[in-house]
Design a protein around this nucleic acid. Structure first.
Lengths: 200, 200
DNA sequence: GACCGATTTAATCAATTGATTAAATTCTCC
DNA sequence: GGAGAATTTAATCAATTGATTAAATCGGTC
């Protein structure tokens, strides 16, 4: 019991610190302090900073994508599905606006982090969706479009603003709360934007 | 003469190293080595790592945005303008695919880096474009849409894939060359996607 | 209560790194 | 060609940091 608690405690602290500071700027001492334990404890439970980070990165990546690829696999009308994906994605992003930049930052520095499970699931949900797009094109429900690009477009429109949030906040001189408000309003706009573009 | 050359030489080396490794992972010794000078030289010319980085970040940011905001200010039909922005942006991105992730990475860690000039110019070009969108809506040339969101959408669709490039390459098992090829094809798709969505 | 393994602590190591310094070398101007 | 400033070099400092170690403490079992 106790071990699990301490271990989990350290993982949660590590998530917080790694997200806030990034891999290089986070120190084992930071994490230990955040978890209220001696810094040797962190090594005792996780051997090395790398191993701990691997666990954290994996967990965050999974959390960030699992919701969406569930929806992509659901049996829904294509327009409904797009609306649901967009709504879901942006809602989660508003609650965790730091995740996209964190994932990008670390993924670029060490692409080997992607070896793990959830990237396979992304591909899976992408494949399912692309089939549905092909079908909708064949049915004459949507115009001719490259399915992969449509999949990409959906994610682009949802996630990108969170990648450049500091820039947006600086240019528009808005607070974090106002930014979230903007994103909230943007939700239906984005879904409309996509559907307007592909419907016949 | 000579000083300018050495100084510029170091700046170029610093760009390369900072982009490749990020601020924390790049060392003054790395930069010195890349520039073929003694590491004290880097301090001699730029006082501190921070100052040098500020110069580099500013220069890269300016380079990354100046092309686009020029186009936004040109006197072009709105559809033409969108096509030109998209083409231009993606073309530059293919030549410098590391820039978006670099800028995001550093901007999130130190938003104070944005105090500089070019963020004002982004705002300026955004304002110009939004006026044009309002006019096009009034003319009945495009449907009703939030102008700021349209501006955001254009950048999202162009830039986002480069933010998640490692993930895309891993999921699709494609090389860098193949990725670039995809982006090249994507160019007209993106412009079409946007125009289809807003035209009446 | 004594034993034994798991957990926790404090102290310390070795390596890295931004920065400084003082001496050496080069350049410039007279 | 020589004085003085600018540039370059090698050596070194002080601080940080991931990791290790040995000792201390805790927890359960007999």
């Amino acid at each position: 019991m106790k071990e699990t608690t301490t271990e989990q405690h350290i993982i949660e602290a590590a998530k917080k610190v790694f997200i806030a500071k990034g891999y290089e700027n986070a120190t084992m001492r930071d994490i230990a302090k955040e978890a209220n334990v001696n810094s040797a404890m962190v090594h005792y439970y996780f051997r090395s900073k790398d191993k701990l980070f691997g666990i954290v990165f994996d967990s965050i990546g999974k959390f960030f994508y699992e919701n969406v690829y569930q929806i992509y696999k659901e049996d829904l009308d294509i327009f409904e599905k797009i609306r649901k994906v967009v709504y879901n994605r942006i809602t989660i992003l508003i609650q965790h606006p730091e995740l996209p930049s964190f994932l990008v930052r670390e993924m670029f520095k060490r692409p080997e982090l992607l070896e793990h499970n959830y990237s396979r699931q992304i591909k899976e949900s992408c494949d399912v969706f692309m089939l549905q797009v092909e079908a909708a094109m064949a049915n004459g429900r949507i115009r001719k479009i490259n399915p992969m690009n449509l999949f990409l477009n959906i994610d682009s429109l949802c996630v990108f603003p969170f990648h450049i949030r500091p820039l947006m906040q600086h240019c528009s001189e808005i607070s974090e709360a106002e930014f979230n408000e903007l994103m909230n309003e943007r939700c239906t706009d984005v879904a409309d934007f996509i559907i307007q573009s592909i419907k016949l």
